[in-house]
Design a protein around this nucleic acid. Structure first.
Length: 399
DNA sequence: TCTGGGGTCCTTAATCTA
DNA sequence: TCTGTAGATTAAGGACCC
């Protein structure tokens, strides 16, 4: 029987990415607590906190008001996504010099299949060292790298050595490595499921292994139970898929104060639809499903979707469809905290073959849409609301 | 108490269809 | 034709992730 070759997966995670980018671009911020996210005093959360800020207990996803309470003297910055995307591209270019099998998990994280690279770099630990060295010397960013026999172990490895670390978990050390970890470290175990599992008297991964599968299934459902049991034994996928195709495009916005004015809602939706359409055209995608998202006070969130007869990347069609959904799908009539719109449902092969995309025309439309967004901003900014483009489509008051 | 934005995936319920 | 049923598909919402 042929022995199966050992697979090695690396997980590369850039440390406090947004904050680190800002500290690189602005040397005067180095060594200071830096918080990237919403404007203090407004609705929103922390997107990234430098390690100096974390010493004050500031973490990502924390309400910005709470961050301010903990450290009013920190440097507070709004995200500059263009800067981060640029930096991210540079890092991914570096990763591509190590192996072509790189999967972007997010703007600041990647999985690499580094199996069989011994001849080039040496054992897995040397591959990890090389990755970290190249990123640091060529960009100035530090990265944490975890290496293991599958994606889960690689990811837990990088988490366990942050910041600026390297951890290699050998296959025979996997059970001991994850056994003492809190179950929250497993993938897909958020607050709700943690509470459920905690009620079974389970706190650690090792304890989870002792729970009979049938009992887990009763509380978590078949799929989740099977997934957590596999994870508890250190088993997970070792596939790295380069060029994952995205499945949806959406834009949403939260209002400073909840909105009842339909003109404001419609204008906002128009800007969002324009943004979705622009992204779709840039990425040569067209979606047959339009989704409207509405959030009310108390975080009460509803979505409504409809399938079109053919895919679209047209901002007007996205807007009118979403507006129709807003009025004709039995949504509560009350002040709106957030509004969003998205498209999904495309057949990429079909799109690749179809000659749907007239680039110059698309660019022209994009310029027009940017003017539209500027118009809206200007009108809101000046405090004078005028609707030169005509009123929103007929409003059904019975909604 | 306060919870952004952009995503993915899963479960459940409703609806369609054989 | 009526009725019940099972499976597939779609829609909505929840949970989760970064």
């Amino acid at each position: 029987m042929k022995a199966k070759r050992q697979r090695w997966i690396a997980h590369v995670d850039l440390d406090a990415f947004f904050a680190s980018c800002e500290q690189l671009a602005n040397p005067e911020y180095r060594g200071l607590p830096v918080v990237v996210g919403a404007r203090p005093g407004h609705r929103g959360v922390v997107a990234a906190a430098s390690y100096e800020a974390r010493e004050y207990g500031i973490q990502s996803a924390m309400p910005i008001s709470e961050a301010w309470r903990r450290c009013p003297d920190a440097v507070y910055l709004r995200p500059d996504m263009n800067r981060y995307r640029q930096m991210s591209r540079r890092v991914f270019d570096i990763l591509a010099t190590v192996t072509p099998v790189v999967e972007a998990a997010s703007i600041d994280e990647a999985y690499l299949d580094i199996s069989g690279l011994e001849g080039l770099f040496g054992p897995p630990r040397d591959v990890g060292r090389e990755i970290r060295k190249r990123i640091l010397t060529e960009t100035g960013l530090t990265a944490s790298v975890g290496i293991g026999p599958n994606r889960l172990i690689a990811k837990l490895g990088s988490e366990s050595c942050k910041p600026d670390g390297l951890r290699v978990v050998m296959p025979d050390a996997v059970l001991d490595f994850i056994g003492p970890m809190p179950i929250a470290n497993l993938r897909g175990l958020g607050k709700k499921k943690q509470q459920t599992v905690a009620r079974l008297g389970v706190d650690t991964v090792a304890q989870l292994r002792a729970v009979p599968l049938a009992e887990l299934e009763r509380h978590l459902g078949r799929k989740a139970a099977a997934s957590f049991r596999r994870q508890a034994f250190g088993e997970a996928s070792d596939k790295v898929v380069p060029d994952r195709q995205r499945k949806s495009i959406s834009k949403e916005t939260t209002f400073g104060t909840d909105v009842t004015d339909e003109h404001v809602l419609h204008d906002t939706l128009r800007g969002l639809a324009a943004g979705v359409a622009a992204t779709a055209r840039r990425e040569r995608l067209a979606g047959a499903i339009v989704t409207l998202k509405i959030r009310y006070e108390g975080f009460e969130t509803h979505t409504r979707r409809v399938k079109l007869s053919s895919p679209t990347d047209d901002q007007r069609q996205i807007l009118t469809t979403a507006w129709r959904l807003f009025h004709h799908s039995k949504l509560p009539v009350k002040p709106v905290r957030l509004i969003g719109v998205g498209i999904s449902g495309w057949d990429s092969d079909e799109l690749a073959q179809a000659d749907l995309f007239d680039q110059p025309a698309a660019m022209q439309q994009d310029r027009a849409l940017l003017r539209t967004i500027d118009d809206v901003t200007e009108r809101f900014g000046s405090g004078k609301l005028q609707f030169g483009a005509g009123p929103p489509q007929p409003i059904d008051n019975k909604r």
